[in-house]
Nucleic acid binder design. Sequence first.
DNA 1: ATTGTCAGTTATACCCTCTAACTAAACTGA
DNA 2: TCAGTTTAGTTAGAGGGTATAACTGACAAT
Lengths: 247, 247
Amino acid sequence: MATQVSRRERLRQATLAEIREAARNLLIYKGTAAVTINAIAREVGMSGPAVYRYYESHDDLVSALTAEFYEELTAAMKAAGAATSGTPGQRLIAMARAMRTWAVRHPAEFGWVFASPVPAVDIRNPESSRHQAGVAFGKTFLDQLVEVWETKPFAVPALDELDPSLLRQLQDYSEAIDGLLPPEAVHVFLWCWIRLYGLLCMEIMNQLAFAYSDMEPVFEECLEEICEKLSIRYERCISQRRGRDAS
Amino acid sequence: MATQVSRRERLRQATLAEIREAARNLLIYKGTAAVTINAIAREVGMSGPAVYRYYESHDDLVSALTAEFYEELTAAMKAAGAATSGTPGQRLIAMARAMRTWAVRHPAEFGWVFASPVPAVDIRNPESSRHQAGVAFGKTFLDQLVEVWETKPFAVPALDELDPSLLRQLQDYSEAIDGLLPPEAVHVFLWCWIRLYGLLCMEIMNQLAFAYSDMEPVFEECLEEICEKLSIRYERCISQRRGRDAS
DNA sequence: ATTGTCAGTTATACCCTCTAACTAAACTGA
DNA sequence: TCAGTTTAGTTAGAGGGTATAACTGACAAT
């Protein structure tokens, strides 16, 4: 199906992608601070202000890049889920492993999305594609967990045993996701997410290097805990560090 | 005891502190990017390059600031531990609460040390006062946990059930801390540290705002888990959000 | 009183973001 | 075909950043 876009538009999209590509390479090889409009312009072979034809501002470019990384990470997780035949629980674990694999292979990008140069813009501007990509990323894991919940409910805490403030927040979030999960299951979801994402962030931000050089077994233990919490049978990954990528 | 330092040296130290103070205020009120040599110079009322008499470079200043924050956080934790009469376990929990209290009161500073503008310098330069302050911070929690271990040992995993790579790393770290804890207890220590510090980082980096607005009960649940792991009796904090600070 | 050290200055080189004003090419429609 | 518009690119420049060099004045020590 020949996409009905003008030649100009095609060129434009190509240049946009080339700019992001250059920015990404600068990030990977020279660090966050090297991702400047001028440096990117030099890289793609145009002079400074020309980049502003493509991205309104440096912030704008940063957001676009962040969104791209989120999307790539999300795609890698979805691909891993789709490639895994088995129970929803097994797919969930496969997605978690894919998340770490992507993060470990792309530490600069993962660090960038976690501790973005333009921090906490998320909240300020919920319309941005960056924010939407972030939400979609979180939702990927949530959706898979919902599937687990629906096919084989896991143990949940009794609502009346929870802290009142906590309960209120769980109810709010349960509503925010259109009741996809009841508050007590939301609690378990967030418990898993905090362990998983938190551990990964600490690994990528080098906060555990004082003790661990190889975090893979630590991550696997974390998955084991999550499996227990979700009544999923834990299976050690056979091909421990496998190839392939979805980027 | 009149410190035998020259008047010049006293003035110099005062200026150094004033520069850090200005830098900190810029960080708090205008964000990471506003912490520039020039802006600081304006703030303290000297012109640009004069600051280089006090700090060799921007990086140098950043490191000094980071070290200061680490030290303040460490001091707050130690103070909370010292102020708590009770078992070593109760002191450990008091220190953990103090850590969060400091982080919540000083989010800019906590975020700064976690995701420093000059990332992962830690490893590159283990002589820097910044790195040493970071180590001292981690050691504060470790030391307290050692006291717990020595007065009332907690359950530990069997060494032969652990992943071989993980075991090797635990043994290495156990040696690195001069056998203060055996490898199996190190494993539990790191488990606690990852939960505690990881959760805090996610909170301060706003990674959980999509679901939680008040993280205090979530943190308390985390403490409860840690108590269980360490065979400490969990006690809900009575004066839930108390005053006082050690800064 | 002289001499060296130290805090501060200005000037400058080079990088950054972003705007303004301009040029040239490519598309569009009569 | 040929204006007219849109678009991609240019250079010039304002304003701010890091950092160095060269200089000035205050202070301390012999």
